[in-house]
Design a binder for these strands. Structure first.
Length: 572
RNA sequence: GACUAAGUAGCUCAGCAGGUAGAGCACAUCCCUUUUAAGGAUGGGGUCCUGGGUUCGAAUCCCAGCUUAGUCACCA
């Protein structure tokens, strides 16, 4: 057990005192909440009669104690409201313990209480609850960061990213704007779900554990299934499964899919992330562009009441229609080079001329993509559909109806970032197999992201898939844009962090106890600087044995003196 | 993976010409019986991220490591 800080010890003492007074600091019974802070603040001025008796519950966020009367800021799920706690009101009789001892001394910032009372307006003009009854609902044993705010200026903000992400619960308690982001995230997802359901598309779940990681070019995570004794991959995309379902006869299917990619992490990439993919039978990519425009405008309106959203310093207008421009035309616009119809050698020369780096594993598709990525992508600030990608970089996409070297594909760019990706889906099984085989050749050439061949998927196509349009959209990025978040970590509740070896934590010494070290001595060893078995073996045994004896006295421990043969047994 | 920066009290941060570790908030005790980040006084609280090195002496200088952030590479 880690040593407690003074403040933690004081709170534990308060906890014990509450129990001694017959107050359960963690009562089992439900607490009947009849009002919320936001509702009271909004409605009380208009309809005071509705609030002559309320009960609210929440966390104590600040206290101003002045003798026989106190003011408390109580935070519930939708905001804060001030409480007016008067001694003789909550303690009408002779016994003033509940106020003097329980409220003033044993309760702290961070504790969760329920109060009953009536709403009124203080002399300072603040709507408050005049408390007549106070119930302890949960005692908090750790001090919260104290964030204060006046006139929009925040004092002592809790803003260390590491602590915020590792202890998101604390972040959510003290930073209301963080809680709001995840409310918005849910709104975005629900808006999309409503939009799809209204049109009769079916929400489905497909496997996360896959034996062939298909549907995207990415490095997968590998895991192992014991009973089957096979390696499985965590999905990198769900595309191939959703298309099997279109083969199966659904008009439209969609899934909010948690995907996993074993790649770098940065401001816009987390190892697990959420994509929404949707596939609709008998549609093409032109239809899908309109579908996406409408969806995004609706999301922006739901969240902000307008299609104009401020994203990373740009005012983005999600009003449909968005610009639609073929990739090669855009490259021509930005660089002056017409890459359409160039062979691999010509593309390499063009890359060189433009100062775009290449390597030997890159085929035509990747070369064009490199030019696009370097010269065009960052210029696409307002929502723009880039269409008609070269065939080499789109192995699951139907050939363009007017040009066999291109595909019917679009990507949507906003603020220079890819937001969505969509195709007229390839449903020619023979063409699909050839494209997979081309991927295999790329893989042999050294492209470690080239796709695997999924023969069952090819078989599904052989049964016949209707013409279909499919679209994938990165939910995390979408939420970032819609909420103005700078980092993907700000739109994920628990972004991936490197685990810490928590020193002083309970697990410490596990490794020692496994080697037969007496539990009582593990804290003493820790004091002597020995935290694992390796360090124990490495220490000078004579010196350590003596030190342990000394520390036992120094720490005033009630355990028997350590015998040398016991000590030697630890060392094996 | 590379480079740069940061890591000091529960939180936010000073301190870095090397010489006993500081402030505000929070906490405790007392005074005041009063409201709007902060009433007054007093006090407690620290493995200055970890481990080495230089030095009589290291929070401070040097090296290595850990974690985080930013940029780059890869990717959505």
């Amino acid at each position: 057990m880690a040593e407690l800080t003074e403040q933690e010890q004081i709170r534990r003492n308060s906890l014990a005192e509450l129990r001694n007074l017959g107050i359960n600091p963690y009562p089992a019974a439900l607490y009947d909440v009849t009002a919320k802070s936001a509702d009271i603040l909004e409605r009380f001025p208009r309809e005071p009669e509705a609030f002559t008796h309320v009960s609210v519950a929440g966390r104590i966020m600040s206290r101003r104690i002045m003798g026989a009367a106190s003011f408390v800021e109580l935070q519930d799920d939708c905001g804060r409201i001030q409480l007016y706690v008067k001694r003789d009101e909550i303690c009408p009789g002779e016994d003033k313990t509940l106020y003097n001892t329980v409220f003033k001394r044993l309760l702290d910032i961070g504790d969760i209480i329920g109060v009953e009372g009536f709403v009124f307006v203080t002399q300072m003009g603040e709507t408050s609850i005049h408390v007549t009854k106070l119930t302890v609902l949960s005692k908090s044993l750790r001090p919260l960061p104290i964030v204060k705010e006046k006139d929009g200026v925040v004092y002592d903000a809790f803003n260390d990213p590491e602590q915020r992400y590792r202890m998101r619960y604390v972040d959510l308690i003290v930073n209301p704007q963080v809680r709001e982001v995840f409310v918005q995230r849910a709104k975005i997802v629900n808006t999309m779900r409503d939009y799809f359901n209204e049109q009769g598309y079916l929400e489905v779940d497909t496997p996360v554990l896959q034996s062939i990681p298909g549907g995207a070019a990415a490095r997968p995570f590998i895991t192992h299934h014991n009973a089957l004794d096979i390696d499985l991959y965590l999905r990198i995309a769900n595309e191939l499964y959703l298309k099997r379902l279109i083969v199966g006869g659904y008009a439209g299917v969609y899934e909010f899919s948690r995907n996993f990619r074993n790649e770098g992490m940065d401001r816009t990439h987390n190892p697990e992330f959420t994509c929404m993919e949707i596939y609709v039978a008998y549609k093409d990519y032109h239809w899908m562009m309109t579908f996406v425009e409408t969806m995004l405008a609706r999301i922006a309106n739901t969240l902000h009441g307008t299609t104009k959203v401020s994203v990373w310093g740009n005012e983005i207008d999600f009003k449909a229609p968005f610009r639609r421009v073929p990739m090669c035309q855009l490259i021509k616009e930005m660089t002056g080079y017409d890459v359409e119809g160039m062979d691999e050698a010509q593309l390499r020369d063009t890359c060189k001329a433009l100062g775009v780096e290449t390597d030997s594993t890159m085929g035509k598709g990747k070369l064009i993509d490199a030019i696009f990525g370097e010269k065009c992508e960052h210029t696409l600030i307002q929502p723009t559909f880039v269409t008609d990608y070269p065939i080499e970089m789109s192995p699951l996409c139907k050939r363009h109806r007017d040009n066999p070297n291109l595909t019917e594909r679009f990507e949507l760019f906003v603020c220079g970032k890819e937001l969505a990706n969509a195709y007229s889906e390839l449903n020619d099984p023979i063409d699909q197999l050839e494209r997979f085989q081309e991927q295999l050749r790329l893989s042999e050439k050294g492209d470690d992201e080239a796709m695997f061949i999924d023969m069952d998927f090819v078989r599904a196509l052989e049964f016949g898939m209707p013409p279909t349009s499919g679209m994938g959209i990165g939910i995390d990025r979408l939420v970032m844009m819609m909420t103005g978040a700078q980092s993907i970590q700000d739109v994920l509740l628990f972004p991936q962090m490197k685990p810490l070896t928590m020193s002083g934590d309970n697990n410490e010494g596990d490794d020692l106890s496994q080697h037969g070290v007496d539990e009582n001595w593990i804290p003493v060893l820790a004091k002597a600087g020995i935290k694992n078995y390796e360090q124990l073996k490495a220490a000078n045994p004579n010196k350590l044995f003596n030190d342990l004896g000394g520390l036992r006295k120094k720490m005033k421990l009630e355990i028997p003196a350590l015998r040398r043969e016991v000590f030697d047994a630890w060392l094996g």
